[in-house]
Simulated scan of single mutants.
Amino acid sequence: MNEDRDAILQAVSSAVLAVTRHLSVREVLQLIVRSAGQLLDARYAALGVPDEEGAFAEFVAEGISPEEWDAIGPTPRQHGMLGAMLREGAPVRLPDIRRDARFEYWPRAHPVLKDFLGVPVLDGDEVLGILFLSNKRASGGFTEADQRLLTMFAAHAAIALTNARLYERGRELALVEERTRMARELHDAVTQKLFSLRLTAQAAASLVPRDPARALEEIERVERLAGEALAELRAVIVELRPAELGRHGLAETLRKHVHLLDRLHPAAFTFDEAPVGALQPATEVVVLRVAQEALHNASRHSAARAVGVWLGCRGGRVVLEVRDDGPGFDVTAAAGRGLGIASMRDRAQALGGSVTVTSDPGRGTLVRMEVPA
């Protein structure tokens, strides 16, 4: 008996730890569902986060393939058992959901659910979502002990979900504050200079027919103001340089970014480096931005199990490689798919470097960047 209890507590602990180490709301939802299904050996598991319009802002399920989702159709509305659980905020355990008065219907392609266990994910009295399982693989359906276990897990999942929401809102607020600051800097430092530049150019144009010498003086002033405006703009652009680069340098900033992705995604993200020495700030920014774009593509599009980043210096050139073991793709056909390849190449070429993307179906993808050190 004690061994069974210890095994259950260990399973809950492992599931909760897997959830709380992720900060993305979507990833947290997916892990809650996956962990709950594994914990109670259910064929189907799902979690719905309600919106204010009678539907679900997020709905994540395990046990249903993408093809089956396409056949089922849109995300469910807050009706039937799902709506009842949101209204009542109490656990529901049934031997057959189809025999309950609260059950209404499923879409034609929906899998047939029988035994059912659902619990609310609560933050105080607020229902953050509903977590439910169906079709337990072991005979006999869900037990009262299963209900207690899922309720305990949902309480911990609520903490993880709240934490993830706070983290994402904090990032959004920080981004808004940064945009506001940059808009103010651009207005104060550059806009007034450009306004003066325009007025001086207009004055020079009006003087050309009647006072060429004076017009030449004004044109020289235009040139000087243009140089000052360019200098001001460059200074503002330097401020756009990520603060982490100034504090930690390129390698450590990349390492931290890769480590964060490893926490946020199921794939394994790793980082290796060889010394690159001191680089110009503009070079560091470009290498970081290209790395972020390539990593974004790998995490969102590649379905890879492993993504590796390497940063080093060869032959007087900084080399960045982002490699994944995903299914690969046709690089030529992907030119217009919004993968940011053109943007990465433009950034590298601005520094006299290059970006090459090598990929074939079934062979993964390698993004390689070289720029002068």
Rank of each mutant, 00 (worst) to 15 (best):
A267K: 02
D330Y: 14
G352T: 11
T365Y: 01
D330M: 13
G249E: 04
L351S: 07
A291M: 10
T332S: 15
E321Y: 03
I341N: 02
V319A: 12
A278Y: 09
E252I: 08
D262T: 12
T270W: 02
Q292T: 11
R347C: 00
R337F: 06
R247Y: 07
D360F: 12
I341W: 01
A342I: 08
G312V: 06
P275Y: 08
P327W: 04
G246L: 08
G340E: 03
Q280H: 14
G364S: 13
P266A: 10
R323D: 05
T253V: 06
A298E: 00
A251R: 15
A268I: 06
P361G: 10
R363Q: 14
S343W: 04
P327G: 15
G312W: 02
L250Q: 00
R300D: 04
H296G: 13
P275K: 13
G246R: 15
V319R: 08
S299E: 05
R255A: 13
R317K: 15
C313W: 09
F329D: 00
E284V: 09
A291W: 03
A267H: 02
R289C: 09
M344T: 09
R255V: 09
P242T: 10
E321R: 08
L351F: 14
K256E: 12
L288V: 11
D330W: 11
R241M: 10
T283V: 08
G353K: 04
A243C: 08
Q292W: 01
A333W: 01
K256Q: 15
P242S: 14
A306Y: 01
L311N: 03
Q280R: 15
A334Q: 10
Q349N: 15
D262Y: 03
K256G: 13
R289E: 13
T253W: 00
P266W: 11
P281E: 07
A333F: 04
E321T: 14
V286F: 04
G312R: 02
V287Y: 01
E273M: 05
A243N: 14
G328I: 02
A306P: 02
R305E: 08
A282T: 05
L288G: 00
R300G: 07
A294Y: 00
L288F: 08
L295R: 00
R300E: 10
G353L: 09
R241W: 02
E293G: 05
L320P: 05
R289K: 10
R241V: 10
D330A: 13
R337M: 11
D272I: 09
A335K: 08
D325L: 07
G249D: 05
A282H: 03
Q349F: 11
D325K: 06
V258E: 04
R337W: 08
R345Q: 14
G316V: 11
D272Q: 13
A350L: 09
V322D: 03
R347N: 03
F271I: 00
V276Y: 00
A303T: 10
E273P: 05
A304R: 00
A267M: 03
R314S: 12
G326Q: 03
T358P: 04
F271R: 00
A306L: 07
T283N: 05
R247G: 11
R317A: 10
R323F: 02
L260M: 15
T356C: 09
A334W: 03
C313V: 12
A282R: 06
V285A: 12
Q349S: 14
D325F: 04
H259K: 15
T253Y: 00
A306R: 09
Q349D: 15
R314L: 07
L311M: 13
Q349C: 15
A335T: 13
